[in-house]
Amino acid sequence: MPGAVIIGAGPGIGQAVARRFAREGFAITLIARSDSTLRAGAEAVALGDVPVLALAADSTDEHALRSALDEAADRHGLPDVVVYNAAIIQADGPGDLPLRGHLDAWAVNVVGALTAAAHVAPAMAARGSGSFLVTGGMPEPKPQYVSLSLGKAGVRTLVTLLDQRYGPSGVHVASVTVAGPVAPGTDFDPDDIAEHYWRLHTQPRRHWEHEALHTGRTGPASPAGQASISSTVS
């Protein structure tokens, strides 16, 4: 049975992606910081007839995240797709955050994705297949969203670096850039956004894209809309 791991399995995109892959018969592993998030996520996916594993780990705790990925592989095998959906989304201008605040945001938005990729992508490359997908945002940097703008720029660079390293061995690395407030029944419905992840995972190698941009039917959203997604997705 194929497997999907979702890191940052909170309400919205994380759970929608889990449901989307579960519909295709994937064994699902959900990784999040809190037990309440994991319970809600497991309940959302449990409607399908696939195994669901819920594991608590903070994406900034390297040992905990690597251990969770190892447990997922032990239970469901090397995943076919890993989705990194953890982020700190907050409004802050130049000089608003102390150094610690920027480091904390960078650790979740970028370094956690690097940790996860470094742990699973080499095995995917050895197998010759797999997808590593990251949730992006902020198509244009905004001075009122400094830490988020820096983080999402970092995600784009990370995707390029990972593709350079693992793409030739068959690992599809890409981001899904969401340019608006995620909410059911809107242009930014999480179930619609989840389709990008499935499409990227199933793309033939000759047609690989490395960024899917979801702007909704009415065009890009304002930065205020971006900030309303959540404070921390994990």
Score class of each variant (00 low, 15 high):
39 R>K: 09
53 L>S: 15
119 H>Y: 08
101 G>M: 12
133 L>D: 02
56 A>F: 07
125 A>H: 12
87 A>Q: 04
43 E>S: 13
104 D>L: 14
124 M>I: 03
94 P>S: 08
128 G>M: 14
64 A>F: 10
68 A>E: 06
61 D>T: 11
68 A>S: 07
48 G>F: 05
117 A>R: 01
40 A>H: 06
94 P>I: 12
98 P>Q: 12
82 V>A: 05
133 L>M: 01
107 A>D: 09
42 A>D: 10
39 R>W: 09
78 L>Q: 04
110 V>Q: 12
70 D>G: 14
131 S>C: 12
118 A>R: 12
65 L>M: 11
32 A>N: 14
114 L>Q: 09
69 L>P: 09
108 V>K: 01
117 A>H: 00
52 V>R: 00
43 E>M: 13
131 S>F: 11
103 L>V: 10
62 E>H: 08
90 Q>N: 13
85 N>L: 11
131 S>N: 12
82 V>I: 15
116 A>L: 04
60 T>P: 07
81 V>C: 03
109 N>S: 12
96 D>Q: 10
126 A>N: 04
56 A>R: 01
56 A>I: 03
59 S>E: 08
53 L>C: 13
120 V>P: 02
35 D>M: 14
136 G>I: 05
54 A>C: 04
140 E>T: 09
57 A>D: 12
88 I>G: 04
38 L>E: 08
91 A>T: 10
102 H>V: 05
69 L>S: 06
75 R>C: 14
67 S>V: 08
114 L>F: 14
43 E>V: 12
62 E>C: 08
46 A>E: 01
125 A>N: 11
104 D>T: 15
43 E>D: 15
103 L>C: 10
122 P>S: 02
97 L>M: 15
53 L>Q: 07
106 W>N: 02
68 A>P: 14
122 P>K: 08
85 N>Q: 14
95 G>R: 11
86 A>W: 01
34 S>F: 14
106 W>S: 02
64 A>Q: 05
91 A>W: 04
122 P>Y: 03
134 V>R: 00
